[in-house]
Simulated scan of single mutants.
Amino acid sequence: MVASYFGSGSIYIASQAGVEYGYALIWAVVGAVLLGFMAQDMSARLGIFGDTLMGFIRKKIGKGPALLLALFLSLGCIAWTVALTAAVGMSFEILSGQALSWQPVAVVTGLVAILTGVLKYERVETFVTAMMFVLLVLYVVVAGASGPAPAEMAAGFLPTLPDSGAMLLGAAILGTTALWPNFFLESILVKKKGWTRDEDLSEVRHDLAFGYIVGGLITVCIIVVSAAVLRPAGYTELTSFITPGQALAEVLGEWAMVVFLIGVICAAFNSIVPIMWTVPYMILEALDAPQKEQDTRAFRAIYAGAILIGMSSPLVSAVTGLTIVQMVTLFPAINGVFGLPITAAFLFWAVNDKKTMGHRVNDWKLNAINVVLVLFATYVALSSARGVIRAIFGDMMG
Rank of each mutant, 00 (worst) to 15 (best):
200 D>F: 06
199 E>W: 05
200 D>R: 06
202 S>G: 06
207 D>S: 15
205 R>S: 04
210 F>I: 11
221 C>L: 07
220 V>R: 05
199 E>M: 05
196 T>L: 07
202 S>M: 11
215 G>F: 09
209 A>T: 14
212 Y>M: 13
208 L>H: 11
215 G>A: 15
198 D>V: 06
203 E>C: 04
202 S>N: 09
205 R>T: 03
207 D>P: 07
200 D>I: 07
209 A>I: 12
203 E>Y: 08
215 G>Q: 07
224 V>I: 14
213 I>M: 13
210 F>H: 11
204 V>Y: 09
216 G>V: 01
218 I>C: 02
199 E>H: 10
212 Y>E: 09
221 C>V: 04
213 I>V: 15
202 S>F: 09
203 E>M: 13
196 T>D: 03
198 D>C: 00
212 Y>T: 07
223 I>R: 10
208 L>G: 13
203 E>F: 10
203 E>A: 15
217 L>P: 00
210 F>A: 13
217 L>T: 11
223 I>T: 08
221 C>E: 01
214 V>L: 08
196 T>V: 10
201 L>T: 10
225 V>T: 15
209 A>D: 09
207 D>N: 14
219 T>G: 02
221 C>D: 08
222 I>E: 02
218 I>H: 03
213 I>N: 01
217 L>S: 12
198 D>N: 08
213 I>T: 15
218 I>Q: 02
224 V>G: 01
208 L>N: 12
222 I>W: 06
209 A>N: 04
199 E>Y: 04
223 I>H: 05
197 R>F: 03
211 G>I: 01
211 G>A: 10
218 I>K: 03
205 R>M: 10
222 I>A: 04
207 D>G: 11
214 V>N: 04
225 V>L: 13
211 G>K: 06
200 D>L: 09
210 F>D: 00
211 G>C: 11
200 D>H: 14
206 H>G: 11
204 V>L: 12
198 D>E: 15
205 R>V: 03
224 V>R: 01
210 F>Q: 09
218 I>W: 05
211 G>D: 05
196 T>P: 00
205 R>F: 07
201 L>N: 06
220 V>D: 01
225 V>M: 15
198 D>A: 13
215 G>D: 10
214 V>E: 02
224 V>S: 01
220 V>H: 03
205 R>C: 07
220 V>Y: 01
207 D>R: 09
